[in-house]
Amino acid sequence: MNDFFSTTILIATVASGIRLATPFLLASLGEALGQRSGVLNLGVDGVMLMGAFVAYFVVLKTGNPLIGAAAGILLGMVFGLVYAFITVNLHAEQGVSGIGIYLFGLGMSDLLFQKLVGTPLPIMPFPEIHIPLLADIPIIGPMLFTHSLIVYVAFLLVPAFTLLLNSTTYGMNIRAVGENPAAVDSLGVSVTKVRYSAIIIGNGLAGLAGAALAIELGIFQHNLTNSMGFIAIALVYFGAWRPFGVMAGSLIFGMVAAIVLQGKTLGIIPRSASDLAAMAPAVITIFALVLVANRFKQPAALSKPYERGR
C-alpha cells in the first residue's frame, strides 16, 4: 500500500515537473532560435505577458482554447515583426530595446486586463489528452502521456528544431547568420530575411508560452509570468543554444520546483525552510552549469547588428 502510494507521488511529481517546464521550454526554444540568428531578445517576458493576456481574452470570448493559443502565437509574431524592424533595420541596441519591450508588455497587459476584463474570470483550460496505448503503460504512461496538447507540442518542437537547425538549408542559414553574417551576405543570402524569420518565429513561441500559461491556469493576472521570461533566457545559455540542451535546462528547473512543492505538501520540507527550498531550482541550475564543463561558445555575432560593408 505504502509502495503504491509513493509510486503515485512519483508519477504526480514527474508530471508536475513536465507541466512546470513547458512554458519555459517554449519561450527558451524561441529565444534560442533568435539568438542562433544573432539577435538577443531580453523582452521575452513582455511578449509572454501580452500573449498570455490575448489568449486569455480570446478564450474568455470564444470559449475555445485552441483559438486562444493561436491568438497568442499571432500576437507574439506581431511583436516579433516590430522587434525585427527595430533590431535588424534600425540596428537598435538589443539589450535595452528588449527591456523596453518587456516594460511595454508588463504595463500594457495589465492595463488591458484592468480595462477589458477586470475581475479574473476563469476560462476553459486545455483538455488532457491521453495518448492511446502509450498512456496505458504503467508508471511511464501517466507520467508522460496524459498531458494537455500544448505540452506535447512543446516537447515535439525539440527534435523538430534540432532537425531544422542541423539538417535544413534554412537552419544552416540561421546558424551562419549568427556566426558570420558578412560571409552569408556575400553568398547572396539575405541576412535581413533570415533574421526577420527567426525573430518572428521565436517571438511567436514566446507568445505561445504565455498563452500556454494563461490557458493551463485558466486565469490572467497582473504579471502572471512572474519573470518566467527572464529565466527562459537564462535557460538558453544553460542549453548552449541547442534545443535538447534547452529542454534539459527547462526540465531540471521544472523538476526541482515540482520536487520542492511536493516535499512541502507532504511535510518533508519543514515550513521554516520553505524559503530556502524555493531557491533550489535557481541554485541547482547554476551548479549544473558549473559541473557540465561548458565547452560551448555563444553565436559570434550575437547582439551585433549587421551592416553591409562594416
Binding site: 513582455g46 527595430i86 530595446s97 516594460l103 511595454f104 504595463g107 500594457m108
Partner: peptide, 12 residues
C-alpha cells in the same frame, strides 16, 4: 500600469 507601458515605449 499605463506609465510602465509608456516607459517601455520611450525606451524602444
Amino acid at each position: 500600469a499605463l506609465v510602465i507601458a509608456l516607459n517601455g515605449l520611450i525606451v524602444v
